[in-house]
Design a protein around this nucleic acid. Structure first.
Lengths: 144, 144
DNA sequence: CTGTATCCTTAGGGATACTG
DNA sequence: CAGTATCCCTAAGGATACAG
């Protein structure tokens, strides 16, 4: 499943080529905010992604350099996916998206407190989340 | 062509429901940055949008309250589309997207100067563009 | 657990013709 | 000019079964 060829050099178009579909940003969201890292964890997205779609998007994300796939040395059958710096740089976009939705979606689940913090100290929060993402707390062995 | 039903209350999902496809943000881009307002002007997007897709997305954008359709009183056959406040609030998202692409796309057409200005004075630029959008310069009659 | 493989259905989208 | 209406094809995506 190869990338369609670029139709313009517009930066908006470039971005949409990377994540302008219904699922990619939801995967990024789960990696970024929900601490999900393995295939099975990502499968649990509340929106119900299909196995083939998840596999396909993970390949694309890796090809695009937004995600890297790492193997646990101790658990040869378990991989984990992690955002690269390029992926982490999607954070400001995500934050703006969340703010926009919080403003216009009456049903949004973004907590008032989170959005208020966002608005007030976006820069600091970005740095904070960024470092948390770069060096995530080492996790115990995956639960069976 | 009705909206698929919401699968979650996640703000990211809400946003993707509004513009998580290949074309919607390109239309917003043309309304926002390129001064395009009529159907025919929007058809000239460099990426080559089809007439049926453009018509469909404009309906959706209007349903979602992101765009309003106005008729020229003098030119009964010509409409113009304009961003609503909700649509204008997409500006910060667009700016972050442009910055991200400018950083990672070697072919991007975003000018260095524009991106540098963005980075340095995003807040001021946002206000400036915003007011330019709310009260756009009144234009001459559309060219034949 | 981490995916592949298949099957099948629908939605997205290109091309083109046509209408008020 | 501003769209509709078709036609037709491909990609996207759901469901489920299977494999290393």
């Amino acid at each position: 499943m190869r990338h369609r060829q670029r139709k313009s050099d517009c930066p908006v178009h470039f971005a949409l080529d990377a994540f302008g579909d219904a699922w990619t940003l939801l995967i990024v969201r789960d990696l970024m905010f929900k601490g999900r890292a393995t295939y099975t964890e990502l499968l649990r997205a509340e929106e119900g992604i299909a196995t083939n779609i998840l596999a396909d998007r993970l390949v694309r994300l890796e090809e695009d350099g937004i995600v890297v796939k790492e193997r646990y040395s101790e658990h040869p059958n378990t991989s984990r996916y992690r955002l690269t710096p390029k992926g982490i740089d999607l954070l400001p976009i995500m934050l703006e998206i969340i703010q926009w939705s919080a403003k216009y979606d009456p049903r949004t689940a973004a907590s008032r407190e989170f959005v208020t913090r966002l608005r007030a100290e976006k820069a600091r929060l970005t740095t904070e989340l960024r470092s948390a993402l770069v060096a995530p707390p080492e996790r115990e062995r995956p639960r069976p």
